[in-house]
Simulated scan of single mutants.
Amino acid sequence: MPVAPRISGAPPAPARPVFLAGDQLELFVKEDLTLNGSYLVREGGYIVIPRAGRVTVAGLSREEAEPRVREFLLKTQLKEATVIVERTPSVANSTAVGGGGAATASIPRVLIYITGSVPRTGGHAIPVPPGKTVGVYEALLISGGLGKFATLDKVEIFRFDANGRRKKSVIDMRPIMKGEAEDPGIAEGDIINVPEKVFGF
């Protein structure tokens, strides 16, 4: 009987990193800013969300944890929930935006989170050369640009204050894009939300 030839397939794709006990999970919920912050994944594999309770995230990737947390919040306290979940990684992570190649490996990075009307939501480690400043508009371009229906005059920035609480500011991107206004610099942990235009019918 002939022996079937041995076919060597392509190497398996690397597994997505998953949350484990002891990890820090960064949560952003657009509809309820009081829920935003860093949560410890406890020994039981869950995080404790205020007023909601425990939700298990251990063994889940970021892409799997986001719908799990969203479903949990919809069941417990919110009618709408726009959720971003991130592990709090080293900003030198090799999978960061920019490729992490030899030319950029030594450049410090600032970790920000982008949501709303953009092509690529989630966490982005933006390269910031020493002595330089990367602005909000510049960071949005680096991370994939703006959505077709982005509301440019009401871009929201959530930034930690001196007390560790996120404060919201709103900027108008239009004069920045025209070169008529300064592009405010990004900071570690910023959440940038680009609202989508609402069309009436």
Score class of each variant (00 low, 15 high):
Val69Gly: 01
Ile49Gln: 03
Arg68Trp: 00
Pro130Ser: 08
Val118Thr: 07
Pro129Tyr: 08
Arg87Trp: 00
Arg70Asp: 04
Asn36Met: 08
Ala52Trp: 09
Pro130Gly: 05
Ala102Arg: 12
Gly101Ile: 12
Val136Met: 07
Ser94Glu: 14
Leu78Phe: 11
Thr121Val: 10
Thr88Phe: 09
Leu111Met: 13
Asn93Pro: 00
Leu78Ala: 05
Arg51His: 13
Gly100Val: 08
Leu60Glu: 10
Glu63Gly: 10
Gly45Asp: 02
Val118Lys: 02
Thr76His: 11
Thr104Ile: 11
Gly116Leu: 05
Arg68Phe: 01
Gly131Phe: 08
Val91Asn: 14
Arg54Asn: 14
Asn36Ala: 12
Val134Met: 05
Lys75Arg: 13
Thr76Asp: 07
Val48Ile: 12
Arg51Asp: 14
Lys75Thr: 13
Pro67Arg: 03
Pro50Ser: 02
Ile49Pro: 01
Thr88Tyr: 08
Glu80Tyr: 12
Tyr46Met: 09
Gly53Glu: 01
Ile114Asn: 06
Thr133Gln: 15
Arg42Gln: 14
Lys132Val: 12
Leu60Pro: 07
Glu66Arg: 12
Thr95Leu: 13
Ser38Val: 15
Tyr46His: 13
Thr82Ser: 15
Tyr39Gly: 04
Lys75Gln: 13
Pro89Tyr: 10
Glu71Leu: 06
Val57His: 03
Arg120Asn: 15
Arg42Asp: 11
Ser90Cys: 03
Leu78Thr: 09
Glu71Ile: 00
Glu64Gln: 15
Thr115Cys: 00
Ala81Arg: 01
Leu73Gly: 05
Pro89Ala: 08
Val85Ala: 05
Ala65Arg: 06
Val110Lys: 06
Lys79Gly: 14
Ala92Tyr: 11
Glu80His: 11
Val48Cys: 02
Ile107Pro: 06
Pro89Lys: 09
Ile84Asp: 07
Gly100Tyr: 01
Val69Tyr: 00
Tyr39Ser: 03
Pro67Tyr: 02
Ala58Ser: 12
Val128Ser: 07
Glu66Leu: 01
Gly59Lys: 07
Gly116Glu: 00
Leu40Asn: 13
Leu111Gln: 10
Ile112Asp: 03
Ser106Met: 15
Gly101His: 11
Lys75Ser: 14
Gly98Met: 02
Pro50Ile: 06
Ala92Thr: 15
Lys79Ser: 09
Gly100Gln: 07
Leu78Gln: 05
Val83Ile: 08
Pro108Ser: 09
Arg120Leu: 11
Ile107Asp: 09
Arg54Met: 14
Leu40Trp: 10
Pro119Ser: 01
Ile107Lys: 08
Leu74Pro: 04
Leu40Ser: 13
